[in-house]
Design a protein around this nucleic acid. Structure first.
Length: 751
DNA sequence: CAGTGAGCGAGCTTCCGCTTGACTT
């Protein structure tokens, strides 16, 4: 018998590796692959379509060091436990690892943990299995289909539209959704409707308000001023009678804990964070934060997940915490378990605090402001998800006059339940209907006097554009993309300039429209929102061993190839023209609307009358505040290297420039515009006027990076400068602050 | 700070999904 060797466990995430090593103790070494290490090559198709879709897998460029490390470790090890995530991608990563590292069959064992708790990890290691080839094959089919679609369509776009463009199963549909929304908005016909509010008074002199509800006992809507007048004429100066008073209670249950998409949604809505920023902060919380007296603590579970599952440990800890801190009546009485969505892979738990008893206040000192706010959101949503319902007492009173019913409604909280921790204002309807003021005591048959009648005209509003977060929610609902790709997909369609961000909202560009129209005409299947859903159904069959992955690809490719050659033929010798984006800016020479052009230095505004009129100006966004040097407007600019800065509209003639963001605040001492640090989150503004008594010196502003000091010349040695690509070019987003008219929302029925 | 927009066309771009990285203006 040989001396026992240490066993090796390979997982995907380094933070997870640390935790698992602690749970397993001696005898196990746990290392991380950090994602895929073998994949199709980047520079070629890498799929032999003619010969059974044979893939040409390669070690991933730039990951040689990890591959080396894993190979050495696996040679030395006894058993190699492939413990990548328990889903399709994880199974494939394990298979690729086994092949890439040349691990013999008898040494490689597959294990899975669907939560990272001590029991589950130990149980998992105790029950290893073989790699499930059906799961792997489903992943291969998915991977190769995506490769074929992307690497066949993109070059077509290079030739027919513009170089550098791209198309793919996910990004093309995401772009189309943004465009479809724009089409809906364009086709929207606003409808008129009216609110009619009556102020009524009891004999005791108490007054309250009731809204027009209907005629002849039926709920009806008012669509025109004439209808409003008819009602007004009828009831003016006549007595009202209380026809009914209804008391009721309403229960409200908490939202489920977060998954990636809902976290991004709420962080956007409540903290103003972009999905990308949210994921970055969540990653910090996941990897661990130094907590005084505790060392490094991972504060949350994994943040890329589609599962609502909660571990038994977490459910028990939440129960203990809620009972201990809020009292028995605030606990639901038993664990609340939520049902995970149907197109989920369910590999990880929901996003929750790793230690439910660790309150946001306890860790606040150790966190940055953003980390604290995000942790508070995650902690609150999870804790609330195990708490009792909120209960509301409602009163509805109908007052009738001449056959017309007016309804008064009041709701007040009877028991806060989970709302003591997490207010989840899911719908705005309540705020609209529920009067703030309590109603006076009313009894059936009581008569009331009309003291005021207030008609209000409204129009239904078109749906609003998607924000990053709402687009992600829509994608998730349709099963398009995965938690790890939601935010990057939006980066891609923005980088391609298919969409631009205008304020918070995504708007399609003429390029996005042109490319999408081409796709809709030539490849309707690919940009069909249901394409992915159908693909997933087919992959399920592969996973169940009921379909062969190469057959699946061959079926798909038959139709796709036909579309490809038809497109090539129809577009022979055609170059599709992309219309210029028309801005709201007017040419001072000839009065035409300036258009957006792309030049050597990026996007800029130019007169469409070129070459007769050659007026140009930079593409700018006007900021609040005034130039502290000369009082002119301040524009947001983008430097050649892609950084955002702010400068006086006069440019070099004035010379004012700043990395700090101008605000609408004015210094109380000198009256000049105040600035704040760049970056998300509420930040205090400060005065940058050196002559002012409120002046905040640079070293007190808390810049994250050293300012280029006066001494450090740029000369120095260029060595040690690692070749780093300049940050992806940012496009100067939209122009002007979106001036959406604030019309009331439809507000019909509160179902 | 720059002050641009077509044309030859070298050599290049591109997918989705899994992970983390990082010292600059």
């Amino acid at each position: 018998m040989a001396a026992t060797k240490t066993d090796l466990v390979i997982v995907e995430s380094p933070a997870k590796a640390k935790t698992i090593e602690r749970y397993l103790g001696g005898g196990y070494k746990v290392v991380a692959s950090m994602g895929h290490l073998r994949d199709l090559p980047k520079s070629t198709m890498g799929v032999d379509i003619e010969h059974g879709f044979e893939p040409d897998y390669q070690p991933v460029k730039g990951r040689e060091d990890v591959i080396d490390k894993l190979r050495k470790a696996s040679r030395k090890a006894g058993t190699v436990y492939l413990a990548t995530d328990p889903d399709r991608e994880g199974e494939a990563i394990s298979w690729h690892l086994k092949e890439l590292l040349d691990i013999p069959d008898d040494k490689a064992r597959r294990v899975t943990f669907n939560e990272i708790t001590k029991n589950v990890v130990q149980e998992g290691i105790a029950h290893p299995r073989d790699i499930d080839q059906d799961l792997v094959d489903a992943q291969q089919a998915r991977r190769i289909l995506d490769r074929i679609v992307g690497y066949k369509l993109s070059p077509l776009l290079w030739r027919k539209v513009r170089k550098g463009l791209s198309a793919g199963r996910v990004q093309s549909v995401a772009t189309r959704m943004v465009l479809d929304r724009e089409r809906e908005i364009g086709a929207f016909q606003p409808e008129e409707y009216w609110h009619l509010t009556a102020t009524l008074k009891t004999e005791r002199g108490e007054s309250f308000q009731a809204a027009f509800h209907g005629a002849g006992g039926k709920k009806t809507d008012l669509h025109s001023e004439a209808e409003v007048n008819k009602v007004s004429e009828a009831v003016k100066g006549r007595p009202f009678t209380v026809a009914a008073v209804t008391h009721g209670t309403k229960k409200r249950s908490p939202s489920p804990p977060f998954i990636t998409s809902t976290l991004q949604q709420e962080a956007s809505r409540r903290l103003g964070m972009t999905p990308r920023r949210t994921m970055s902060i969540a990653q910090q919380l996941y990897e661990g934060v130094e907590i005084e007296g505790e060392g490094s603590v991972g504060l949350i579970t994994y943040m890329r997940t589609d599962s609502l599952r909660l571990s038994e440990d977490a459910l028990a800890a939440a129960a203990r915490f809620i009972r201990g801190h809020y009292g028995e009546e605030y606990y639901y009485g038993k664990p609340r378990r939520y049902k995970t969505g149907s197109n989920a892979q369910d590999a990880h738990e929901a996003i929750r605090p790793s230690i439910p008893s660790l309150t946001p206040e306890q860790v606040k000192k150790s966190l940055t402001g953003e980390q604290y706010r995000l942790y508070r959101l995650i902690w609150g949503r999870f804790t609330a998800s195990q708490m009792s319902n909120a209960v509301y007492d409602n009163i509805t009173a109908d007052a009738v006059c001449e056959g017309y019913t007016f309804r008064a409604y009041h709701s007040k909280i009877a028991f806060p339940g989970y709302t003591a921790v997490y207010e989840d204002n899911r719908d705005e309807d309540e705020a609209e209907e529920g009067g703030k003021k309590p109603l006076p005591e009313l009894t059936k048959g009581q008569s009331l006097a009309l003291t005021g009648l207030d008609p209000e005209q409204h129009f239904t509003a078109p749906p609003s554009r998607y924000s990053e977060a709402t687009l992600i929610r829509a994608m998730e609902e349709k099963g398009i993309g995965r938690p790890s790709t939601y935010a990057p997909t939006i980066t891609t369609i923005t980088a391609r300039e298919y969409v631009v961000k205008e304020g918070k909202y995504l708007k399609p560009t003429p390029l996005g429209e042109t490319v999408t129209e081409l796709m809709e005409e030539r490849f309707p299947d690919i940009v069909d929102v249901k394409f992915t859903a159908r693909m997933e159904d087919t992959l399920d069959k592969v996973e169940e061993g009921k379909a062969d992955w190469k057959g699946v690809l061959s079926d798909f490719y038959g139709g796709f190839e036909k579309d490809l050659s038809a497109a090539e033929e129809a577009l022979q010798g055609v170059r599709i023209k992309v219309p210029d984006e028309v801005s709201a800016e007017i040419c001072p020479n000839c009065g035409r609307n300036l258009v957006v052009k792309s030049g050597r230095f990026g996007r800029f505004l130019a007169c469409p009358g070129y070459p007769d009129c050659s007026f140009t100006m930079p593409l700018v966004v006007e900021m609040p505040g005034r130039c502290p040097k000369c009082g002119s407007r301040i524009f947001k600019r983008t430097s050649k290297k892609g950084y955002t800065y702010y400068a006086c509209e006069k440019g070099p003639a004035c010379g004012f420039m700043s990395w700090d963001v101008p605000t609408k605040d004015v210094c109380p001492a000198c009256g000049k515009t105040m600035f704040k640090l760049a970056g998300k989150g509420q930040r205090k503004s400060f005065c940058i006027n050196e002559a002012c008594e409120n002046f905040l010196p640079e070293d007190k502003r808390g810049y994250r990076y050293r300012r280029s000091g006066s001494a450090a010349e740029t000369g120095g040695d260029a060595a040690g400068q690692t070749a780093k690509k300049p940050a992806a070019k940012k496009t100067a987003a939209g122009k002007k602050t979106a001036a959406r008219k604030t019309t009331a929302r439809t507000g019909k029925g509160t179902a």
